[in-house]
Amino acid sequence: MQDMRRRDLASRGITLAVGTVIVSSLLGASERTDEQERADPTGIEFFERRIRPILIEHCLECHGEDPEVIKGNLDLSTAAGVLAGGDSGPSVVPGDPDASPLHLAVTYADKEFAMPPRGRMPAEAIEDLRRWIEMGAPDPRTGAAVAAEIESDPWRDPRGQGREHWAYRPMAILDPPAVDEEGWCRTEIDRFVLARLESAGIEPAPTADRRTLARRAYFDLIGLPPT
């Protein structure tokens, strides 16, 4: 009788151990699948090319550009912030744009929560956001390394530091700078070039002769020297 009990207990122990291993394997596979989806190169490329510029242009001014003033407690400058949402709950339901408040806001489905408030986004941007959410909202903005990389790149900086880059500044008419070698300049653009050279203590290269110019043209056009 005792032998039967021992065998029964042993059998139950083996069953429990096997079940634990199976469940752990399934959970591990699920976690790996989630990580793979988040790291999907196609999704990440789509985010970088299409979604990040939308967030920077239309959203981060109120939802992440200034950490001290984030409206509705909704921070869209990080992946965690997008999923956590704000006062109204999560802003995105990965895979379901129709259940995602962010998508509903940009479509102006609810006038009370229509975003951005200054006017509706272009239709292409709205469609890109919908597609991104359908893809599972892939977002690489996690971890200190990624944040440091973004902050060092003025084209991807979500917190506004990149706005100091010349490409983000409004166009303006500038007076050509004064230069020492006036005779070197043929156009007003030359004055800007020469001013930078002079500030760096660099002498401009001498004027090339016709033979040198022809040689350069060959290299530019066909990549080979003249024969």
Rank of each mutant, 00 (worst) to 15 (best):
I222L: 05
C185E: 07
I133G: 10
P226E: 09
W132H: 02
E151V: 08
E198T: 00
E35Q: 12
Y218M: 08
C62N: 05
F219K: 08
D40G: 05
P90S: 02
A200T: 01
I44W: 06
T187F: 00
I222S: 07
P117T: 05
A17L: 10
E182Q: 13
G160K: 04
G85Y: 00
T142L: 14
G72K: 10
S152A: 13
R12A: 10
N73P: 07
A99S: 13
G13R: 12
P206I: 01
P158W: 02
T33I: 14
F47G: 04
C59M: 03
P53C: 04
R186K: 10
E164S: 15
E48G: 12
E127V: 05
E203A: 13
E124K: 06
D180N: 14
G64R: 09
P97C: 00
D110H: 15
D8W: 13
A109P: 10
K111D: 11
I133V: 08
M121G: 06
D220S: 07
H165D: 14
D96Y: 02
D190M: 02
G223A: 01
R141E: 05
A137I: 02
P94V: 04
T207V: 14
D110G: 12
V193D: 00
R38Q: 09
E65S: 13
R38Y: 03
R215D: 08
D66Y: 07
Y168D: 06
R49G: 13
R5M: 11
E68I: 13
M121C: 03
L27I: 11
R163N: 14
V23I: 08
T20Y: 13
R32N: 14
E181V: 15
M4F: 11
I126K: 07
D75Q: 03
